[in-house]
Design a protein around this nucleic acid. Structure first.
Lengths: 199, 199
DNA sequence: ATTAAAACTCGAACGCATTCGAAAATATTG
DNA sequence: CAATATTTTCGAATGCGTTCGAGTTTTAAT
């Protein structure tokens, strides 16, 4: 009988995941232990390691799902004719929402995504989807003659992503405290990048 | 007798620090336990917590010392008449050296400095010194009429620091593998920022 | 010099992520 | 339907960072 095992594997993974999400949301990441998750999911704690490599990966899986939702929401957003600046700000602020909703989650996520301890294929895949969206924004802009064709689109993506990163750092360090302020800083930085600062 | 205690405090702190540096350099950060450090320093492990709040702080203290050296070296460097681009690249590549010398150290440092778990005054102080140097670079540039006076110097600092951050991320994610490449990417990004990408 | 307060020390204990290893569940083969 | 191989499970054990608390040393006050 093929399938009894496969069926259970899927169910168990899902059970772990939903238990984890519930607890993370309820008590936070650091204060939720693997044993808590196991108990909530009704299994032994060692079993979890048959489904996720470590605690961080459960968390990353969650982040990835959340952000995927945000990304697809962005695609549906009709920003067709809007200026590049507007599109970029909108895109990154969408991502930033996730960070502000639960600061502890956000920091943990950034740490894992930006300076990962375990370089998982998960994260790499996430990056790719990320940069695809940015690429499409810049492609439109180049087609419309708003941005020079000579600029490598990947480098443009890296540039604006970096600026976002810098702003988020400021947020976690307490230099930026309100979301409005965050958006404003993003706008200033993006404008600098678009217009240049040199005379 | 005033001083017996103060004297010992300084000695003990130094002993912990040198033991930690020796072991970190020898075996790496994660594989060096607090107990190892205590043994090497000839004290009990709980004693360490009277001198450093946690393991990360010992490490940050080390990073801070290393980078302070690099910074003062930079000031002495005679880049007087050179273009802003050159100064900036030189400054950040100096910092990047530290990252490349021991990748594990570098990642750990970035994690703690950019998305700190414990927001220590240590790190804040470090940031400040950091931005002071950038500020002086931009001040010179504005004085020489190379960069518009209208640009807030702090925002300029944030901008270029962000670009550095983005490059380092690429390094840890494996998209950038050689230091030469790193410098090149930095150049491209900095040029984009200086000249702008908009038409 | 005596003594009470304060600071320091360190082995034991705690909580937690992760690994081990033997037992149980399922699949595969003859 | 055995009998054997493979996977999955989970309590126990490991290792580590950090905290506790009792004992010790130094300081301050009389």
């Amino acid at each position: 009988m093929a399938g009894i095992r496969e069926q259970k594997k899927i169910e168990t993974r899902q059970a772990i995941y939903t238990a984890a999400v519930r607890l993370f949301a309820d008590k936070g990441f650091e204060t939720t232990s693997i044993e808590d998750i196991a108990k909530e999911a009704g299994i032994g704690k060692a079993t979890i390691y048959g489904y996720f490599a470590n605690k961080d990966e459960i968390f990353l899986y969650y982040c990835d799902n959340q952000l995927s939702d945000a990304f697809s929401q962005f695609k549906q957003d009709s920003l067709e004719g809007r200026p590049v600046l507007e599109k970029l700000v909108r895109f990154f602020m969408l991502k930033f929402c996730f960070v502000t909703q639960n600061p502890e989650f956000g920091r943990q996520m950034m740490r894992e995504m930006i300076f990962p301890n375990h370089n998982s294929p998960q994260a790499q895949q996430h990056d790719q989807r990320y940069f695809e969206i940015l690429d499409s924004i810049f492609k439109d802009a180049q087609d419309q003659g708003r941005i020079g064709e000579g600029h490598d689109r990947f480098m443009l993506s890296v540039h604006f992503f970096s600026l976002y990163l810098g702003m988020v750092t400021g947020w976690f360090k307490g230099y930026v405290s309100k979301p409005d302020e965050a958006e404003n800083i993003l706008r200033i930085l993006f404008k600098q990048a678009l217009e240049g600062v040199q005379i």
